[in-house]
Simulated assay, not measured.
Amino acid sequence: MATETPVRPRPDREEGPGRPAARVRRDLFGVGLWLPATVAVLICGFAWTAVAEDQPYLLPLLPEVGGVLVGDPLLFLSNAWSTLQIALLGVGFGAGTAFVLALVMSEAPVVRRAIMPLAVVLNVTPVVALAPALVVAFGFGMAPKVIVTAIITFFPVLINMTTGLRSVPSPVLHVFSTLHASRLEVLLRLRVPSSLPYALAALRVVFPLSIVGAVVAEFVAAGSSSGLGTMIRTSAATARLEYVYAAIACLAAMGVLMLALITVLERRLLFWHESQQ
């Protein structure tokens, strides 16, 4: 019987202690990371320039948008800060209320059956229709805009937190039961840590969404005198497209920054979770 010659692994396929780190460095600094995004940005830039030169009343030239941003940065910074205040306050109230309700609903199924239908109705109600009534009830200040933003960011956090608090493995619950743990101990030591990935996933959605909520509130709530949403509305009414798209660029940068901060927080808090391995 003929004997088979064992096949030795090729050197480039061998695994070693330094291989994963080298692969990470190669992926981090290699062209595969930044080349596709760079090509996509260049294509979008060329397409934008072509449309702007052919249809100047549809899109402004990119140098005009950049010139507006560079020429008066304080104008955009002050309006961006006004919008960011509304976004942060709204997501704070909306996510905080959703978190407290999710904790109560996880311990009291009767409350969950009573609150969840109301939350669904609130979620499907067009928030634009609520804004005029909120202005009548709370005046022309920041309160109606914060409430609009809170309503927009409330439901995703409520659903994710409710799912996370209820997604505890049964064997782990049995272990806590054999240790005679109280309901408060099960909630604080088991359910809340288990729901942390769900909560942070919801925050990755609602923090950039709060920027959208703040802009919508500035669009529809009367009495807005500052904010990027107000700037977009007034600039569009006077056909100053370079200011419109400069404000949109600021909003996009704010959303990307908020998403990056939540991503960093998620990596710090969930270093133990399998999603971060």
Rank of each mutant, 00 (worst) to 15 (best):
P126D: 12
I115P: 03
T83W: 05
R112H: 14
A221W: 00
G67T: 08
F99Q: 01
F76T: 06
S225L: 12
F155I: 04
V192Q: 00
L130G: 00
V157D: 01
E64Y: 03
D72I: 03
S210L: 05
A246R: 06
E274L: 11
V216P: 06
L75R: 15
A199P: 04
E107F: 01
S170T: 10
I86P: 04
L61F: 04
V68A: 15
V192D: 00
L88D: 06
A199V: 06
T83E: 07
I152R: 04
T230A: 15
G18H: 13
T3D: 08
R19F: 04
P144D: 10
F271S: 10
E218P: 08
T149Q: 02
L251Y: 05
V136T: 12
S78G: 12
S82H: 12
I211M: 14
Q277A: 13
A50W: 13
A202H: 05
F219V: 05
L265M: 10
V192I: 15
T234D: 10
L35S: 13
I211G: 01
S275W: 01
T263H: 14
V68M: 14
V39R: 05
E274T: 07
F29S: 13
V157H: 00
A2I: 08
V136L: 15
I248A: 15
P6V: 12
S167H: 09
G141F: 00
A199Q: 01
A98E: 04
V70Q: 09
L269V: 14
G223R: 05
E274C: 06
L187E: 03
T153R: 01
L42R: 00
V39T: 15
I248Q: 11
C44I: 10
L196V: 09
V205Q: 03
V68T: 11
V220T: 14
Q55M: 10
P208C: 10
L130D: 04
T5A: 11
V41T: 12
F46A: 14
C44M: 15
G92L: 07
G229P: 05
G139Y: 03
I159F: 05
L265V: 03
V39G: 05
P171R: 10
L209V: 04
R10V: 00
P132W: 15
E107T: 13
S170D: 12
E242N: 12
E4H: 09
L75P: 02
A202G: 12
V104E: 07
L103F: 04
I262E: 03
P63A: 11
V128A: 13
L134N: 10
P144N: 11
T125A: 14
R233L: 14
P208Y: 12
G32M: 07
L188Q: 02
E185W: 03
A247L: 09
F29H: 15
L241G: 09
V205Y: 06
G164W: 07
P9G: 02
P208T: 08
L190K: 01
R183S: 15
V136Q: 13
L75S: 11
A199F: 13
L257S: 15
E242C: 11
R204F: 06
F99C: 03
Q277V: 09
L61Q: 13
L259T: 05
V192E: 00
M231G: 00
L75N: 11
A237K: 02
R10Q: 08
R204T: 00
S170N: 10
R240D: 14
P9V: 14
E64D: 15
V216H: 10
F138M: 03
